[in-house]
Design a protein around this nucleic acid. Sequence first.
DNA 1: TAAAGTCCGAGTAATTTAGTCAAGTATTAG
DNA 2: CTAATACTTGACTAAATTACTCGGACTTTA
Lengths: 156, 156
Amino acid sequence: MKLTTKGRYAVTAMLDLALHANDKPISLADISARQDISLSYLEQLFSKLRRQGLVDSVRGPGGGYRLSRECGDIHVAAVIDAVNESVDATGCQGANGCQGGETCLTHHLWSDLSEQIHGFLTSITLADLVARRDVQRVALSQVQRSAEPSPLHFVS
Amino acid sequence: MKLTTKGRYAVTAMLDLALHANDKPISLADISARQDISLSYLEQLFSKLRRQGLVDSVRGPGGGYRLSRECGDIHVAAVIDAVNESVDATGCQGANGCQGGETCLTHHLWSDLSEQIHGFLTSITLADLVARRDVQRVALSQVQRSAEPSPLHFVS
DNA sequence: TAAAGTCCGAGTAATTTAGTCAAGTATTAG
DNA sequence: CTAATACTTGACTAAATTACTCGGACTTTA
């Protein structure tokens, strides 16, 4: 489990996707403009998100991406893991003198700690984030142009 | 809140300190040998840990470091924050068009998320980690030379 | 006074992050 | 059919961070 700005970009982009979910897919150019993330960087991220089955892509004009499932079924941990790819535990891979040695102290401790954080982030879904009031307030300014009524209902 | 191998090194070193806590301070050379972390890198990390008041140093021969407080009073979050230093929130600092704009979506979301993770790691102390059975088993081989009885009691 | 240790700063290789560029391929509007 | 749109892929690059080295201080104990 790694927690860097890369994962933050991915979560932000996925949240943008969840907020603007209509019938139409969302183009990366739209997300790039709204969230101020470089288009090419988004391409890299979504390439991984698609390979992990978190989003579906629609090619051609009017195409773009949409969430593969309901946002309540997409966990934050899955998004972060998707873009961080290297899921190879914590460095020591059994081989070099790790058995009962000093390195395992690190290994067990950290893998357990990051497992707990992972579990924590697994308990949060995109739907939970959408439901947050702060997000909704900001999102209001972003959907003001939207023709169809937003799926959000703003809790006071 | 950032979660990288740097913080892992720091937590590991602090845990080593907690496990080998006698009356004598522990030298970085010992930690370097036991945990296989470069001595000079440890010096950098402990320089920050000392400036944050997490450890006390004793100079001269026979010197070294010891925890500044009981390990039950040292939170994992504090250790990680100490070595990561830049606690400047999440990039956007109010100034450039952040007011109600698009960037704030990222800002609020992520700062809240990392605040929750921070809270989670604050709830874990070095004492909690020491108490873990996995750690104790591995630690056994490391304290076998210790003259005095280890403060650990091994739960079956 | 000599050895063992902490301190401190500069410098550096490797890795990761973030981004660019350039070419593809697929699809739909017209 | 054609052209515009947009995804897809890969290689490449600049900047930042990580991990580490080196050389030299300073401090204290034996």
